[in-house]
Design a protein around this nucleic acid. Structure first.
Lengths: 225, 225
DNA sequence: CTTAAAACATGACAATTATCATATAATTTA
DNA sequence: TAAATTATATGATAATTGTCATGTTTTAAG
């Protein structure tokens, strides 16, 4: 297993604010976890004993609604931290994390993170900034959920995935989601999501190769308001 | 103007983690701001030069949607801090703050807050905890918006306001909101909010005295699923 | 390769919610 | 106090979205 000091991944998250000594400590304490597509990394309501640093892959954070449906709150990709909120609050997780692609995760024990948070205010400040950004994004999602149509939300979801995760060589979105996942991001019935995607296809905004989606008219999608 | 060291309000927010020296510095730098019901404390997109500590009153945080409607994201009451997110991120505000009752706010300059955040890791950690909690609440709201009906959301809103802010001596909710405000919390048309409230009234779940609302059957409201 | 299971797709219809119109009550202003 | 404005209320109707049924395609398992 590699050393945190020389790991590039940490440049993308708050761990970049740790000192060399702190990184050396973490290198000794961290454990690697390999997770396959579809596997659950942690359940909603679980007590987390640390945070995960995502080395490879992508996962979804979901919350089970009272009506039995899952709502996807966020997609987390390589470079991001997973579980900080629960560790910071010293509470059980409020979300479930499920791998969307095969993943490699570095698990860093809670005690070490807490220690660094209280000792290294630059690190604490950086984690704070990241959480502030998450909060802003969540607020935006609330407004979208409350004020926009399924059609608008789905168009934005496609645009966001395209922007954040990019495309494969053939132009299809690199993150492969099921229609149910799309419905779960947008907060609608699976059938409704399928229907709107079919509509987009008819309008020439997207094309599909199997369940892969390719954006054909990004500007057109943006124009859906 | 009073001294921060002896102010009770700060026990309710992160300022309680400041040292006595830091509080004395803040006392000298802070300014009092009096705001009347309906007044805007800061606009969406404004650059904030500090944070507000709410000494008295309540305000709403709203975001303007693309369709021109305001969405209420959060109600902030006495004891809470206002504007930390923007100050921490060093970004313009993403929300507008409007007083719902007459308010008294202590304004603490940004530099001082940033200084304390970087010097005092206990303070930084505490602000972090508060933001983690805000984030969790926002995630819950997303799920509610996405998965529950207007009727359910409005029932929950009444319950939350009752729990968080309590009632007047006559039993009516102590926070007086317009029907438009309710619609803006729930994310629906004003007419729809009015209709559902009328329905609740017919069902004996609430009663109204003018625009004041009194919860008559809390358990009944909770049963709406 | 064949079969079973899961995911995708679409029609028909019901339920929810938005919009527009209009009326009444409450509040503010002149 | 009267007039004007704003907030509340409700009906009628349209638009959106959900649910159930059913068929097809894709994927996984044996």
């Amino acid at each position: 297993m590699g050393k945190c000091e020389s790991c590039i991944i940490r440049q993308f998250n708050s761990l970049k604010s740790l000192t060399n000594d702190e990184l050396i400590r973490i290198t000794k304490l961290k454990t690697l976890r390999i997770v396959k597509k579809g596997d659950v990394i942690f359940e909603e309501g679980e007590m987390l004993n640390g945070v995960y640093c995502v080395r490879k892959g992508i996962c979804k954070l979901t919350k089970l609604s009272a009506n039995g449906k899952d709502q996807i709150i966020k997609l987390v990709e390589k470079g991001e931290l997973l579980g900080q909120r629960s560790v910071v609050s010293d509470e059980r997780t409020n979300l479930r994390a499920t791998a969307i692609k095969d993943m490699e995760l570095c698990f860093i024990p809670k005690n070490e993170i807490i220690r660094d948070l209280t000792k290294n205010s630059e690190f604490a400040f950086d984690v704070l900034k990241h959480m502030a950004n998450d909060l802003k994004e969540s607020d935006d999602i609330i407004v979208n959920m409350a004020q926009k149509s399924v059609r608008q939300r789905l168009a934005e979801t496609l645009i966001n995935i395209n922007d954040s995760f990019g495309t494969n060589p053939d132009g299809t979105l690199s993150v492969l989601l099921s229609r149910e996942d799309f419905a779960s991001i947008v907060g609608t019935a699976t059938e409704s999501a399928i229907r709107v995607l079919s509509q987009f296809k008819k309008e020439g905004l997207i094309s599909t190769i199997g369940k892969q989606i390719k954006i054909e008219d990004l500007e057109g999608l943006k124009r859906i308001e």
